[in-house]
């Protein structure tokens, strides 16, 4: 029973004698990509070469980025563990720290505490068809898993991506889209909310386009992330398509501080999003108190 429900990844284990969990690792920004008017992608390399070589993480795990003097906030590591030249974070400008992060330029130093949290149960997804449904910045965690699966392509069945944004200008990772479209082992669908000049793809809300795509739930897993309202209707659409709660995964956001299950900030009942999450199956969410 427990095999079937929930993310398989255990809570991250901190080995005795490892680093002070509050001390960030200095990292050099090697590249900044302006994705949209509000999203920038940062590629960083840990300054300590040994730490960078030894750094391991799983798809879906997150990190805390520090702007010293401003603060820390949480972002998914959206490069896959199969590509280790750098760690990539995509940051949507939201408040104080994200605004400060947007001022970073190549060559600047940022603090990184990572990896934190659990990961997508990619082992359990082996042999299955996968549907990714991402909205806006919610594409970031999906990108990690998508690229990880593409790098281990034979382990997975048919892979489909439905990615939506408000407008073409709001679509992050747009420089990668031609490559994704060019692949024969990935089926890509893009959508925007409203008609825009020159737009070659779908127009319509993600849940509606998903219903149109009509993916077969048989031996299939859906992975979705995006703004709360999109998630709500996407889950309804998946239900209509006969996806069981055990076949649906999403990631949660909660305000976080420590990221290691101590500061008491991110709980939903007795679950802590920073260590039990951010990845949850719908079945797990259904068993948790409703406090999203």
């Amino acid at each position: 029973m427990s095999e079937q429900t929930g993310a398989t990844a255990a809570r991250p284990v901190y080995k005795a004698g490892t680093r002070n969990p509050y001390l960030p690792m200095p990292a050099k920004v090697i590249e900044v990509i302006t994705e949209t008017p509000t999203i920038k992608t940062f590629r960083v390399v840990l300054e300590d070469e040994q730490l960078m070589r030894d750094f391991t993480f799983e798809p879906g795990q997150v990190g805390q980025l520090s702007m010293f003097g401003v603060g820390e906030s949480t972002f998914v590591i959206n490069s896959p563990p199969t590509r280790k030249e750098y760690l990539q974070f995509s940051v949507m400008r939201a408040g104080e720290n994200t605004t400060a992060l947007h001022s970073l330029q190549a060559g600047d130093t940022v603090g990184v505490r990572a990896p934190l949290g659990n990961c997508f149960p990619y082992e359990k997804m082996k042999g299955k068809d996968i549907v990714f449904i991402g909205g806006g910045i919610g594409m970031a965690p999906l990108r990690t898993l998508l690229l990880f699966m593409l790098d281990n392509r034979k382990d997975y069945g048919k892979i489909r991506l439905l990615y939506g944004a408000r407008s073409p200008q709001d679509m992050a990772f747009s420089s990668e889209l031609p490559d994704w479209f060019g692949r024969r082992d990935l089926e890509c669908t893009l959508t925007i909310d409203r008609e825009a000049e020159g737009w070659q793809h779908k127009v319509g809300l993600i849940p509606n386009v998903l219903l149109e795509m009509n993916p077969d739930p048989n031996n299939c897993v859906a992975v979705t992330c995006g703004p709360p309202i999109m998630i709500k209707f996407t889950l309804q659409a998946l239900e209509k398509l006969k996806f069981a709660p055990e076949q649906i995964y999403t990631t949660l956001e909660k305000r976080m501080k420590c990221g290691i299950g101590i500061c008491g900030r991110c709980n939903i009942g007795d679950k802590y999003v920073c260590i039990d999450g951010p990845v949850f199956s719908m079945a797990e969410l259904n068993a948790m108190p409703n406090e999203l």
Binding site: G71, K257, C258, C263, R265
Partner: peptide, 23 residues
Amino acid sequence: YCFNITDESDGLTGVRLRSWDNC
């Protein structure tokens, strides 16, 4: 036992603090 983490800085130097927080 809940706490907050904040930075205080004065130009080039500063400290990261943790302090009691209140749910």
